Simulated scan of single mutants.
Amino acid sequence: MFAPTFCYDLDFPRSSGIRKGFILRRCAEILVLLSLQYCLSQQWTLPILRTFDRPLNQYSTLQNIERLLRLALPNHLLNG
């Protein structure tokens, strides 16, 4: 873990051609994850952010903490 050069190999095995099924699977995974991120942001994050109708310093500390905690889970799922 501290010395990744120990597992470096000059003769890394390679396939002779491009595996189209592998590329298609990875592209499908990217599309599914992007659509999931879009849905999560539309359902959870944007409604919370739309409630900010004035600057944050005009809200009480408890209101700011509550909004921060409500954004914690979607932020963790979207950026995790």
Rank of each mutant, 00 (worst) to 15 (best):
I65H: 03
L69Q: 14
Y59K: 02
N57P: 00
L34G: 02
R26Q: 09
L71E: 01
F12T: 14
L77C: 11
C39T: 13
R50W: 08
V32L: 03
R50T: 12
R26K: 13
P74Q: 06
L33A: 07
Q37V: 07
S16K: 12
S60M: 08
F22E: 09
F2Q: 11
C27H: 07
S60W: 06
R50A: 05
R19H: 12
S35R: 14
L33V: 06
R67M: 15
F52G: 00
A28G: 02
G80H: 14
A3Q: 10
P55K: 12
R25P: 00
F12L: 09
E29W: 11
W44C: 04
R26A: 04
F22W: 15
W44M: 07
W44R: 10
L71I: 09
V32H: 01
L62Q: 12
R25S: 10
C39G: 04
R26V: 13
V32E: 02
T45M: 04
N79H: 15
R67G: 04
A28Y: 05
I23G: 00
D11G: 04
H76D: 10
V32F: 05
P74R: 06
P13Q: 06
L68T: 15
R14H: 01
I18L: 05
L49H: 03
D11Q: 10
R54S: 05
L73G: 05
T5W: 03
R14N: 00
Q42N: 06
N57D: 14
E66W: 05
M1E: 03
Q43L: 15
E29P: 01
P13M: 11
D11H: 12
G17I: 06
D53Q: 09
A28N: 03
R26L: 13
Q63Y: 08
T45A: 01
I65D: 02
N75P: 01
I18S: 00
L24S: 07
T61L: 12
P74E: 06
L68S: 15
D11R: 13
L24C: 07
A3H: 08
L31N: 11
C27I: 15
N57M: 08
E29N: 08
C7D: 05
C27R: 13
P13W: 09
D53G: 05
C27S: 07
N57S: 10
F22L: 15
D9F: 08
K20T: 09
G80P: 11
L62W: 08
P4V: 14
L34F: 07
G80Q: 15
K20I: 09
G80E: 14
T45P: 00
R19G: 02
P74G: 05
R14Q: 01
S35E: 11
G17S: 07
I23H: 02
R14W: 01
E29V: 13
A3C: 07
S60V: 10
E29R: 14
R54I: 09
K20N: 02
L71M: 04
G80C: 12
D53R: 11
I30F: 12
A3P: 00
L31M: 14
F12H: 08
N79M: 14
T51E: 01
L46K: 15
L56K: 01
P55H: 14
S15R: 13
R14F: 02
Q58N: 03
L77F: 13
L31H: 13
I23F: 03
L49Y: 04
L46G: 01
Q42I: 13
H76N: 10
I65A: 02
F52E: 08
Q58E: 14
T45V: 15
R50Y: 09
R70C: 07
L56S: 04
